[in-house]
Design a protein around this nucleic acid. Structure first.
Lengths: 338, 338
DNA sequence: ATCCCATAGGCGAACGTTCGCCTATGCTGT
DNA sequence: ACAGCATAGGCGAACGTTCGCCTATGGGAT
């Protein structure tokens, strides 16, 4: 593979002069410049970014550590990150984690060895890992899309209160009083927080909190399906279900359909995320639009600020309700049959 | 940031000896070894992979060029790639493309500058780009998940014939004779090929091909929804629809539901991919299971072979039908109302 | 004719590694 | 007492850049 020296030999100049020309730096005579450019093209010179980074101590690379992105939501964040990084001329090194996040420290180290200019975390599984927190505070500039143990890392989040409060208020306004909840993995802060907000909003409206109405659906379609059956098997009078993501909501709708319950006639369903399929489920799903891709992009911008200066201010992005056909007023007096 | 020299100074040895110890290469006295290891830990030495790669002319990095992976299927391939790469100790540099693939050449060049050890292509938008083909043949070892203009690049694909033939044969066996098709983007080879196989299978069974039964759904939920309405508006007697991916099938099911057509009573639907939601659509979707993640992993393995030797043999992965509730025998004699 | 300065381009050093070769030391066998 | 050899570790070179400084050349002003 050709180097600056090879180009220089062919153009009869020193290799440093070639460097100047190719980077448009120093003063070089037009004729020489032309000769060098032609020589470079002739032998198909391609600069070596490794050597360049070594010397300039900047790799123009971002490291991303992410939860498994088979699911749409982390994939969307990743898309946002990648796109924004690309627009700033940065490459992205991607590391995804085992479900338990146990390999996070190892991959952080790999990123540090590769001298990435910054790190973006989207790995909720590691949100309680103290060692991860330490490394992120000590290592290159970092930004996270979720909590980091010990703090000290700027966060980009979607309004955490509103994310849960909007759909619950919507259901309460429609007259629902017994609202089931299908949660994400309950050890995740986001799931815990959404459930806590659910309780608070109930309390605000003088409604009782019934733990029988809360089931873990583990973020997955099948989890939502199974959780719904468990919920309806053991609790009565449920006229609405708040589902903490749309993927689970697909399972919820299916379970309700299996039980012969109509949505929203017998039971309203509200999801979260505004996943692409949410617009065409049967019925189309009322949900909370989450700015995943925007959050990824915002994380990159925040990271660039952190790299430039050192102002660690968090970013909070707005969420909004998308009203579709899966929610309606609570059935007059009869509860959902179940 | 600490270097080998810093560790060496602290341990009172030459920096090359530190290198030996940290890489477990040369013969070093246990006492010295210990001293060096402690020194390295004390000052928090982290090797510089950039310098290492420069010297060893191997970056332990794979470049991936992918179509936008907001959709589940390319995301799954990417997951497979990343996981397999990780298991081989390789990092992944991710570049996603604009929908038209126009920036492919640019990102290929970036990957070459970064001296990636190999490139994996999953960018159907660039499958006709001659320049991309040239670069891939001339540059570092490459493997692709789709056609490359001019060939010469090993391919990993899912049995292209079976992918379309299985669902069509299934529908014909159920007695369907007028089978609508909702295709992916028609300029994509895979969509073209599936539609061609559809024609062939019809011909095998002595059934006529009616271009009115084929509509472009552009791979997206909304595209599937709109295509279905167009299809049913202009063609009569359709009792089944073959949809070239599950995401569009969600839209198809919704459109049929809107028209008051029951699935599979009035119209059967068969999808493709076995997307996670396919198991819980209403009704659950009969579909073709596509090995996206496996293909990604296989691509990495094939690439490693190519890097080692130079045997460019393609890999073809099996697909299989998943029978669920969206298909049934054709209605006795009456056609679908539409 | 002299001085000055802008322009063009050369050159050494450094970034942090790995690799191969060389040397000093001390131990074994005769 | 000495050849022979294994062991420990030093050292130079190279990987391909960028950067800053230095020098040769030539033209204009005095």
């Amino acid at each position: 593979m050709a180097s600056l020296r090879d180009v220089a030999a062919r153009a009869n100049v020193s290799f440093q002069t070639v460097s100047k020309v190719l980077n448009g730096k120093g003063a070089v005579a037009p004729a020489t410049r032309q000769r060098i450019i032609e020589a470079a093209e002739d032998i198909g010179y391609i600069p070596n970014a490794l050597a360049r980074s070594l010397q300039s101590r900047s790799s123009l690379t971002l490291g991303v550590i992410t939860v498994d992105f088979s699911n749409a939501t982390p994939a969307l964040s990743l898309v946002g990150i990648e796109r924004e990084a690309r627009q700033h001329g940065l490459s992205v090194i991607l590391s995804s984690l085992e479900p338990d996040g146990s390999d996070c420290v190892r991959y952080l180290r790999v990123l540090m060895e590769r001298r990435v200019d910054g790190i973006i975390m989207n790995a909720p599984a590691a949100e309680e890992d103290e060692e991860v927190g330490r490394l992120l505070r000590a290592g290159p500039p970092a930004v996270s899309l979720h909590d980091i143990a010990g703090g000290g890392v700027p966060l980009v989040t979607a309004e955490p209160e509103a994310t849960a409060a909007l759909p619950i208020r919507h259901l309460i306004a429609l007259g629902h009083r017994r609202i089931g909840v299908v949660t994400g993995l309950q050890q995740r802060h986001s799931a815990q927080h959404r459930t806590a907000v659910y309780r608070e909003v109930l309390a605000e409206h003088g409604l009782p909190y019934d733990p029988l109405l809360v089931e873990d659906g583990s973020w997955e379609v099948e989890g939502g399906y199974a959780a719904t059956h468990r919920l309806l098997d053991r609790a009565s009078g449920i006229t609405a279900i708040y589902v903490q993501n749309d993927l689970m909501a697909v399972g919820v709708l299916n379970a309700l359909h299996e039980r012969g319950l109509s949505v929203p006639g017998d039971c309203s369903v509200v999801g979260c995320d505004d996943h692409p399929v949410a617009a065409r489920t049967i019925p189309p799903l009322t949900t909370v639009r989450m700015p995943f891709a925007d959050a990824g992009a915002a994380a990159v911008r925040l990271l660039l600020e952190r790299i430039a200066s050192t102002s660690p201010k968090d970013v909070v992005l707005p969420v909004s309700m998308v009203y579709r056909a899966s929610t309606a007023s609570a059935p007059a007096s009869r509860a959902a049959r179940n």
